[in-house]
Protein backbone atom coordinates (compact mmCIF):
# COMPACT_ATOMS: atom_id res chain seq x y z
CA UNK A 1 0.00 0.00 0.00
CA UNK A 2 2.76 2.38 0.98
CA UNK A 3 4.73 1.42 -2.09
CA UNK A 4 1.68 2.06 -4.22
CA UNK A 5 1.29 5.55 -2.76
CA UNK A 6 4.97 6.17 -3.38
CA UNK A 7 4.61 5.01 -6.95
CA UNK A 8 1.59 7.25 -7.44
CA UNK A 9 3.49 10.16 -6.00
CA UNK A 10 6.48 9.63 -8.22
CA UNK A 11 4.25 9.38 -11.29
CA UNK A 12 2.49 12.49 -10.14
CA UNK A 13 5.81 14.28 -9.77
CA UNK A 14 6.75 13.23 -13.28
CA UNK A 15 3.54 14.73 -14.62
CA UNK A 16 4.18 17.96 -12.78
CA UNK A 17 7.67 18.07 -14.22
CA UNK A 18 6.39 17.41 -17.72
CA UNK A 19 3.66 19.97 -17.29
CA UNK A 20 6.13 22.58 -16.09
CA UNK A 21 8.32 21.89 -19.08
CA UNK A 22 5.45 22.37 -21.50
CA UNK A 23 3.82 25.18 -19.59
CA UNK A 24 4.07 28.44 -21.42
CA UNK A 25 5.58 26.85 -24.51
CA UNK A 26 3.75 28.01 -27.57
CA UNK A 27 3.54 27.11 -31.18
CA UNK A 28 3.00 29.65 -33.89
CA UNK A 29 0.14 28.63 -36.08
CA UNK A 30 -1.48 30.24 -39.11
CA UNK A 31 -5.05 28.99 -39.19
CA UNK A 32 -6.00 31.22 -42.12
CA UNK A 33 -3.40 29.41 -44.25
CA UNK A 34 -3.52 25.92 -42.79
CA UNK A 35 -7.34 25.72 -42.85
CA UNK A 36 -7.88 26.46 -46.54
CA UNK A 37 -4.89 24.27 -47.46
CA UNK A 38 -6.35 21.38 -45.51
CA UNK A 39 -9.76 21.77 -47.14
CA UNK A 40 -8.14 22.10 -50.54
CA UNK A 41 -6.33 18.80 -49.99
CA UNK A 42 -9.52 17.21 -48.67
CA UNK A 43 -11.44 18.33 -51.73
CA UNK A 44 -8.78 17.05 -54.10
CA UNK A 45 -8.64 13.76 -52.21
CA UNK A 46 -12.42 13.53 -52.60
CA UNK A 47 -12.15 13.97 -56.35
CA UNK A 48 -9.35 11.41 -56.53
CA UNK A 49 -11.25 8.67 -54.72
CA UNK A 50 -14.55 9.40 -56.45
CA UNK A 51 -13.92 7.05 -59.42
CA UNK A 52 -13.25 4.15 -57.05
CA UNK A 53 -16.09 4.86 -54.65
CA UNK A 54 -19.00 6.06 -56.78
CA UNK A 55 -19.99 4.29 -59.97
CA UNK A 56 -20.26 6.25 -63.16
CA UNK A 57 -23.79 6.51 -64.44
CA UNK A 58 -25.06 7.77 -67.74
CA UNK A 59 -28.25 8.94 -69.37
CA UNK A 60 -29.67 10.74 -66.36
CA UNK A 61 -30.13 14.40 -65.53
CA UNK A 62 -28.39 13.87 -62.20
CA UNK A 63 -26.36 10.88 -61.08
CA UNK A 64 -24.98 9.55 -57.83
CA UNK A 65 -21.90 11.71 -58.50
CA UNK A 66 -23.66 15.00 -59.14
CA UNK A 67 -24.13 16.10 -55.56
CA UNK A 68 -20.83 14.95 -54.06
CA UNK A 69 -18.96 16.56 -56.98
CA UNK A 70 -20.83 19.82 -56.58
CA UNK A 71 -20.01 19.89 -52.86
CA UNK A 72 -16.35 19.09 -53.49
CA UNK A 73 -16.24 22.04 -55.89
CA UNK A 74 -17.71 24.28 -53.21
CA UNK A 75 -15.05 23.07 -50.75
CA UNK A 76 -12.19 23.42 -53.23
CA UNK A 77 -13.48 26.73 -54.59
CA UNK A 78 -13.98 28.17 -51.12
CA UNK A 79 -10.55 27.04 -50.02
CA UNK A 80 -8.91 28.62 -53.08
CA UNK A 81 -10.80 31.85 -52.45
CA UNK A 82 -9.62 31.97 -48.83
CA UNK A 83 -6.05 31.17 -49.89
CA UNK A 84 -6.07 33.92 -52.49
CA UNK A 85 -7.24 36.40 -49.87
CA UNK A 86 -4.30 35.42 -47.69
CA UNK A 87 -1.81 35.55 -50.56
CA UNK A 88 -2.99 39.04 -51.44
CA UNK A 89 -2.47 40.03 -47.82
CA UNK A 90 1.05 38.59 -47.84
CA UNK A 91 1.90 40.38 -51.08
CA UNK A 92 0.56 43.63 -49.73
CA UNK A 93 2.59 42.96 -46.61
CA UNK A 94 -0.52 43.11 -44.49
CA UNK A 95 -0.46 41.08 -41.29
CA UNK A 96 -2.10 37.66 -41.48
CA UNK A 97 -3.85 35.93 -38.61
CA UNK A 98 -1.44 34.27 -36.20
CA UNK A 99 -2.56 32.07 -33.35
CA UNK A 100 -0.27 30.94 -30.58
CA UNK A 101 -1.17 27.41 -29.66
CA UNK A 102 -0.51 26.44 -26.09
CA UNK A 103 1.60 23.32 -26.36
CA UNK A 104 0.41 22.06 -22.99
CA UNK A 105 -3.24 22.43 -24.00
CA UNK A 106 -2.71 20.57 -27.25
CA UNK A 107 -0.80 17.75 -25.57
CA UNK A 108 -3.61 17.48 -23.03
CA UNK A 109 -6.19 17.32 -25.81
CA UNK A 110 -4.26 14.47 -27.36
CA UNK A 111 -4.16 12.72 -24.00
CA UNK A 112 -7.93 13.05 -23.62
CA UNK A 113 -8.40 11.77 -27.14
CA UNK A 114 -6.09 8.85 -26.38
CA UNK A 115 -8.19 8.07 -23.30
CA UNK A 116 -11.36 8.17 -25.37
CA UNK A 117 -9.89 5.92 -28.08
CA UNK A 118 -8.61 3.52 -25.47
CA UNK A 119 -12.04 3.50 -23.88
CA UNK A 120 -13.73 2.66 -27.19
CA UNK A 121 -11.21 -0.05 -28.02
CA UNK A 122 -11.30 -1.72 -24.62
CA UNK A 123 -15.11 -1.99 -24.43
CA UNK A 124 -15.29 -5.17 -26.52
CA UNK A 125 -12.42 -6.67 -24.49
CA UNK A 126 -13.33 -5.81 -20.91
CA UNK A 127 -17.02 -5.11 -21.25
CA UNK A 128 -18.76 -1.78 -20.96
CA UNK A 129 -19.00 -1.43 -17.21
CA UNK A 130 -15.41 -2.27 -16.30
CA UNK A 131 -14.04 -0.09 -19.09
CA UNK A 132 -16.26 2.79 -17.99
CA UNK A 133 -15.00 2.54 -14.43
CA UNK A 134 -11.40 2.50 -15.64
CA UNK A 135 -12.06 5.43 -17.94
CA UNK A 136 -13.65 7.42 -15.12
CA UNK A 137 -10.61 6.84 -12.95
CA UNK A 138 -8.35 7.68 -15.88
CA UNK A 139 -10.10 11.00 -16.42
CA UNK A 140 -9.82 11.90 -12.74
CA UNK A 141 -6.12 11.08 -12.77
CA UNK A 142 -5.86 13.26 -15.85
CA UNK A 143 -7.52 16.12 -14.02
CA UNK A 144 -5.05 15.35 -11.19
CA UNK A 145 -7.74 14.98 -8.59
CA UNK A 146 -6.52 13.84 -5.19
CA UNK A 147 -9.85 13.82 -3.37
CA UNK A 148 -10.90 10.23 -2.89
CA UNK A 149 -14.61 11.10 -2.75
CA UNK A 150 -14.44 12.24 -6.39
CA UNK A 151 -13.25 8.78 -7.32
CA UNK A 152 -16.07 7.19 -5.37
CA UNK A 153 -18.68 9.38 -7.10
CA UNK A 154 -17.36 8.71 -10.61
CA UNK A 155 -16.90 4.97 -10.11
CA UNK A 156 -20.35 4.72 -8.63
CA UNK A 157 -21.84 6.71 -11.50
CA UNK A 158 -20.11 4.51 -14.08
CA UNK A 159 -21.54 1.41 -12.43
CA UNK A 160 -24.97 3.00 -12.16
CA UNK A 161 -25.06 4.05 -15.81
CA UNK A 162 -23.92 0.62 -16.95
CA UNK A 163 -26.52 -1.13 -14.85
CA UNK A 164 -29.21 1.34 -15.87
CA UNK A 165 -28.69 0.51 -19.52
CA UNK A 166 -28.22 -3.18 -19.04
CA UNK A 167 -30.85 -4.01 -16.45
CA UNK A 168 -33.47 -1.27 -16.62
CA UNK A 169 -33.34 -0.41 -20.30
CA UNK A 170 -32.48 -3.92 -21.49
CA UNK A 171 -29.71 -2.74 -23.78
CA UNK A 172 -27.25 -5.47 -24.57
CA UNK A 173 -24.11 -3.54 -23.76
CA UNK A 174 -20.96 -5.40 -24.78
Amino acid sequence: MIRLTQLMQSIDARFTQLGDKLEGKQMRFYPSLVGPLLFLLMGIAGFLIMPFQVKRQEGMATTARTFPSLLLWVIVGGAILLLLQEIVKIIRKQPIQVVYLDLLTEVKAIVILALLVLYALLIPVLGFIITSVLFGIGMLVFFRIRKWNYYVIVVFSALAIGLLFQVVLNVRLP
Binding site: L140, I161, R172, L173
Partner: peptide
Protein backbone atom coordinates in the same frame (compact mmCIF):
# COMPACT_ATOMS: atom_id res chain seq x y z
CA UNK B 1 -17.00 20.13 -10.62
CA UNK B 2 -15.94 19.72 -14.24
CA UNK B 3 -13.67 16.82 -13.33
CA UNK B 4 -16.66 14.79 -12.16
CA UNK B 5 -19.11 15.89 -14.82
CA UNK B 6 -16.80 15.23 -17.76
CA UNK B 7 -16.21 11.49 -17.32
CA UNK B 8 -19.89 10.95 -16.53
CA UNK B 9 -20.93 12.73 -19.74
CA UNK B 10 -18.51 10.63 -21.76
CA UNK B 11 -19.89 7.42 -20.27
CA UNK B 12 -23.42 8.52 -21.10
CA UNK B 13 -22.34 9.45 -24.61
CA UNK B 14 -20.73 6.09 -25.23
CA UNK B 15 -23.67 4.16 -23.77
CA UNK B 16 -26.12 6.31 -25.73
CA UNK B 17 -24.21 6.12 -29.00
CA UNK B 18 -24.01 2.37 -28.65
CA UNK B 19 -27.68 1.92 -27.81
CA UNK B 20 -29.13 3.79 -30.80
CA UNK B 21 -28.30 0.93 -33.16
CA UNK B 22 -26.67 -1.54 -30.78
CA UNK B 23 -23.44 -0.87 -32.58
CA UNK B 24 -19.88 -0.29 -31.40
Amino acid sequence: PVSILTPIIVIFCFAGAFSVNNSL
